[in-house]
Structure formats: C-alpha cells, structure tokens
Design a protein around this nucleic acid. Structure first.
Lengths: 151, 151
DNA sequence: CACGCTCAGTTCCTTGAGGGAACCCCTTAA
DNA sequence: TTAAGGGGTTCCCTCAAGGAACTGAGCGTG
C-alpha cells in the first residue's frame, strides 16, 4: 500500500502520527497501560493479527515508546512496558476517551470510568494552558510560525 | 486490506479512532482548522492522493466532524468547516502537538507556535481534571468498569 | 521419554486500501 | 475558441492487513 511516511513533515502532528498513527498502535498502548502487556494477552484482547501485532510492537520499541523486557528466564517470557516517552502518549489516549465518551457513546454509557486519585471523583481530562492554567482549546490560540517551520 | 472496524468495540479510544484513526484524517482536520479548507488546497498542502482525500472528506462529513458548505454558487465552490463535534477533536491535535514538540523534535525547534490569547504567552496544553482542576495524567487515575462495559 | 501445552513469534497466501496518474464536468477569463 | 482552475471520479498497480498454519523453546505430567 506504500503508505506515505509522516515523519519528515515539518509538523508535530504528523511526527506524532508517525509514531502512533498506524491502525492498532493506540489500542496496543492502551492495553499495555492497563496491564495487558504480553504478546498473547494483547493479541487475544484486541483480536489483532499476530503478524501485525509483532510489527507494531517492534516499531513502538524502536520508536522508544515501549520497552521489551524479559521478566522470566526459564522459560523466557517477555512483557512490554511504557517508557517515559510512552507514558506521555497516554495523555493522548485520555483525550480520546473524553471525546469518545461525549461524542461516540452508543447509549450504554462509558465503558470505562476514570477516578482521579487526588480528588477521588470520577472525572475526565480538560485542556489548560501550561502557562496560566486557564482553558486552552481550539479557539483560544493564535498560530504563529516557529523556528522549525519549513522554508 | 480489509481493515478491522473499531467502531463496535466497547472502548472509547477505539470509537474515537473509528472516526479519525485512518491515516491522514488528523492532518486533514488540522488543515481545515488552520484555514486550508478547500479540496485543492488540502490536496496540495498534504500531498495526499486525490482519491483518498475524497474518501476521507466524505467519511468525516458523514461522521459529523466536518460540514461541506457551498460558499459560492457560480462557479460552485465548496469549503469544509469543523462542526462542534469536530472542533473538540482539535483538542486531540493540540495534545499531539505538545507531545511531538517534546519528543519528536528534529532539532530545529517547533514548526508552529501557539499563543494563548487570554494570557498572551506562547504555550502548550496540559491535562487537568475537569472536576478539581489538578493535573490528571496516566498515573493519576484509577480505572473502573463503567455502565457501557462489555459482558 | 514421549506427548501435550503455553508463550512468542514467523511464514505464507489472499484481499483490498493507498498512491498516482489520467480523465471528467462545470464555469469563468482571454 | 481555447485555456485554466476547482472539485472531484476512474483506473491500474503495489504493498500492507487479515488470517491461518507453522516454528521453536521450555515446562509438566504419566
């Protein structure tokens, strides 16, 4: 299918998609995040083709988002764990959850709830400005060319 | 390639991916968001195949994320605009930008900067709890089964 | 010791989606 | 009358996703 690679574009969205834009990748990350972290488990949970799963895992490891760790020598058993880079990608998943819960509900309510430990409430994420802490969303920003902009 | 449809999974991430998980879809949304909102413009900007662009636009319109609007009758000219549902997907893009700027920088610095209008600073988004306003990220939540969980 | 089981992949074949170029229709401009 | 531009559609080719079968290492059990 000779898919276009996004990694070389002068766009942080494209570069992020280069890492987790392939189908299945975000779902693999979600699984690892919730503790479904071995090959067989992920395959069974997602119903993904074993071939594609092997490819994706290799790619995510090379991208530095997951780490393949042997947690048992005899017999050799492996698990995948999120790196620091990968943990921050979970932010993306949490925003997807918030959007999906709101706009792609099938009428049965959210399949999963998230309780915020520090306040104890079932809640969801919201976007704030890292600088002033106020809401920062689509209409709240002005877009400027940055130093890495293309010629 | 008989791609697996994610829409029926009991997972809000999968359902979100069903809408914008195909390659190119987030980049199309980004373009529309920044004002590159006509077929020819998007095609030229992204270098996407015209066939795939037509498919994606139709899908995004059917999903209620974009609206196809005729803004000129003679000659007939169309533009694509974000719906309310689509505008909230831009949240996702802003998180991708924040991640990409941090973890997929090519050394030249961010290609695009975002100035938060209300505080005037060039900034990026951060995730907070919609309930208490404190930081809410991967390690800050406890996951519970919700009403829409699968049997 | 042979048999079976689990984990973690790899190999193979088939199908269909992405890429790319060419083509089409409509309208205005020269 | 021809050209140009916008907004697609049609066509063919290639290569990735799906799916099932196979491999191989290491227990565990009679």
């Amino acid at each position: 299918m000779q898919r276009t690679r996004f990694g070389d574009m002068a766009c942080s969205i494209a570069r992020t998609l280069d890492v987790i834009g392939e189908p299945w990748s975000p779902l693999i990350l979600r699984d690892v995040y919730v503790g479904i972290d071995r090959f067989e488990q992920i395959q069974a949970d997602l119903g993904i083709s074993r071939k594609v799963l092997a490819e994706r895992l290799k790619w995510l490891v090379e991208a530095g988002v997951l780490e393949r760790r042997q947690y048992e020598t005899r017999p050799p058993r492996y698990e995948y764990v999120l790196t620091a880079k990968g943990v921050e990608l979970v932010d993306l998943l949490m925003v997807m959850v918030a959007w999906g819960d709101k706009w792609a509900d099938d009428g049965a309510g959210p399949p999963v709830l998230y309780r915020h430990r520090s306040c104890g409430q079932v809640s969801h994420v919201e976007l704030r400005c890292a600088h002033c802490g106020e809401s920062m969303r689509a209409g709240d920003v002005e877009i400027l060319p940055g130093p890495g902009a293309a010629a």
